[in-house]
Simulated assay, not measured.
Amino acid sequence: MTTQTGSITDQLGQFKTVMAGQAPAEFLAAFEAEQAGLNTAGVPASAAAPGTTLPDVELINAEGTPVSLHAVTSGRPAVIVFYRGAWCPYCNITLKAYQDQLLPGLAERGAALVAVSPQKPDGSLTMQQKHELEFPVLSDPGNVLARALGILTAPTAEVREAQATFGVDLTTENADGTDTMPMPTIVVTDADHILRWIDIHPDYTARSEPAAILAALDAALEGP
Rank of each mutant, 00 (worst) to 15 (best):
D140F: 05
T17Q: 15
V188P: 07
D190L: 03
W197K: 13
E58N: 06
S139P: 02
L138R: 05
L12V: 11
Q119T: 01
A111V: 09
G64I: 10
H193R: 14
M1Q: 14
R147I: 03
V18E: 15
G21T: 10
G75T: 04
V18W: 06
S124C: 12
P136H: 01
D192R: 13
A220V: 06
V79W: 05
C91Y: 01
P77G: 00
E161N: 11
P141G: 09
D10W: 01
E58W: 00
Q22D: 08
D199E: 14
D179V: 05
A115Y: 02
G42M: 10
R76M: 05
L69C: 06
A25K: 15
T73N: 00
V57F: 01
M19K: 13
F166L: 15
A41R: 13
A62C: 08
S208D: 04
M127E: 12
A162N: 06
A191H: 13
K16A: 14
D56L: 14
T205N: 12
A154G: 06
G110E: 04
L54V: 05
R196M: 09
P182T: 11
Q11I: 08
S68G: 15
K16P: 00
K130I: 02
R147A: 15
G13P: 02
D192M: 09
G13S: 07
R207K: 14
Q101K: 04
S68E: 11
D10Y: 05
T205E: 12
C88A: 11
A78E: 01
D176S: 09
L195S: 04
V57M: 13
I200T: 13
Y83G: 02
M181R: 10
I8D: 03
P50A: 00
A86E: 12
P89V: 10
G105T: 04
Q11L: 15
T185Y: 05
C91P: 02
Q4A: 14
V187K: 03
Q119K: 03
R76K: 15
Q99F: 05
G223A: 11
A29M: 02
R84C: 01
D199G: 08
T2H: 13
D140H: 08
Q4M: 12
I151S: 06
P66Q: 05
L103P: 04
V67Y: 03
S7D: 09
K130V: 10
D190E: 11
P89N: 06
D56N: 15
L69E: 03
P121R: 00
G13R: 11
G51Y: 00
G85V: 06
A78Y: 02
Y98L: 10
Y98S: 07
T73L: 12
L195H: 09
Y90N: 07
G51P: 00
